[in-house]
């Protein structure tokens, strides 16, 4: 028995030696040493992280990771995606299993402080909304008093719903389901007047499951704030800076009209803002500990923020989400890059 136990331990140690990988020093050192950026992503959320028919990861979160890899390591292919569920994501980041968490994670105070994480700029502003039949002629969620509302049980969605109705003194008649799919089905079978979940989820449900998507509308109210942002560990300032400014660079690129296709021509631009961003005027990349071409590579890899949005969740995707809060600040949205100068 004892030899057996010793054998097992020896076997495990040997396995560790084979499969294990050493992480020493900062995340930046590790990523450079492995020449590979490991990102935690959703196990499957259309538009954000989803393997396609060939098993290739696609989505907005996936593109964020690729952009960072392109800026830092020179190629968007130097990425490794680890699918994680909601409970696993923070331990995986904490233990060093992943370097960067790009998994539609809501930025909250405890996560940003006591939990030991830092949030890079928001890549998608989501919020809970309502979907209803167009035939009901609703203009606002405030008209939902007394209406039956399909909702998934035990989620923050359910709590937000109750809070919103209480705050607005509306009469709440929820129809609660354990599974999201059941709630959706009940809504399309006309068992309730409205259905509530995050706005991005509403749009994808409408696109996928409604018999005729045009019969349904998403009401304008957002009753909760769900800013989704990439996450890094505390104490990795240099890496945090890079992630942060890659996201800003993608947003800035959209504002300056730099696209995946024209980025090389844009290098000839005489606009000082563009010259600083694309490294024609050096200084910015060096400040981050990167080379001057960092932003060029990121934009070439995945396009500017507008292109990423359109391809994954916007007009060019089955989800057909509107920009809304995710429009540039110049168009009335919240996407605002800090000055790159």
């Amino acid at each position: 028995m004892r030899t057996f136990t010793i054998g097992i331990i020896a076997g495990l140690v040997a396995m560790m030696a084979i499969f294990g990988s050493a992480r020493a020093g900062t995340t930046l050192d590790t990523v450079r040493a492995h020449d590979m950026l490991t990102c935690g992503v959703n196990t499957g959320l259309a538009g954000f992280a989803q393997p396609d028919s060939k098993g290739v990861w696609t989505g907005l979160d996936v593109d964020t990771c690729k952009a960072v890899a392109a800026a830092l390591l020179g190629s968007p292919d130097k990425t490794k995606f680890v699918p994680l569920n909601a409970q696993q994501r923070f331990p995986a980041l904490q233990s060093g299993e992943i370097d960067l968490l790009t998994r539609n994670t809501t930025w909250t105070l405890p996560r940003d402080s006591s939990a030991g994480f830092n949030f890079a700029p928001v890549t998608y502003y989501d919020g809970q909304g309502f979907m209803a039949k167009k035939a009901l002629n609703l203009k606002s969620a405030k008209e939902l008093s007394g209406a039956t509302i399909c909702v998934q049980q035990g989620t923050t969605t359910e709590l937000n719903l109750a809070d919103y109705f209480r705050a607005n003194k509306l009469e709440l008649k929820p129809l609660v389901f354990v599974e999201l799919a059941e709630a959706e089905q009940a809504f399309f079978a006309d068992r309730c007047d409205a259905y509530t979940t995050d706005a991005s989820g509403l749009a994808s449900t409408r696109a996928a499951k409604a018999g005729s998507p045009d019969d349904y509308m998403i009401l304008p109210e957002r009753i909760s704030k769900e800013p989704l942002a990439p996450v890094v560990r505390h104490g990795d300032d240099a890496f945090f800076d890079i992630v942060k400014w890659v996201v800003y660079a993608l947003i800035e690129a959209e504002e300056r009209g730099i696209t995946q296709a024209n980025v090389d021509e844009m290098k000839a631009s005489q606009d000082p803002n563009i010259m600083r961003l694309l490294g024609t005027t050096p200084g910015m990349g060096e400040a981050l500990g990167l080379d001057p071409e960092w932003a060029v590579r990121a934009i070439k890899a995945v396009g500017n923020y507008g292109e990423i949005f359109a391809r994954n969740v916007g007009a060019g995707s089955p989800l057909k989400l509107e920009r809304g809060l995710n429009a540039l600040w110049t168009n009335g949205g919240l996407m605002y890059a800090m000055p790159i100068r």
Partner: peptide
């Protein structure tokens, strides 16, 4: 989820394993 947190810094064991 929990096991990796107990491992010494710099050691990760394959998830499949």
């Amino acid at each position: 989820v929990m096991f990796p947190l107990f491992l010494p810094e710099g050691l990760t064991i394959d998830k499949l394993l």
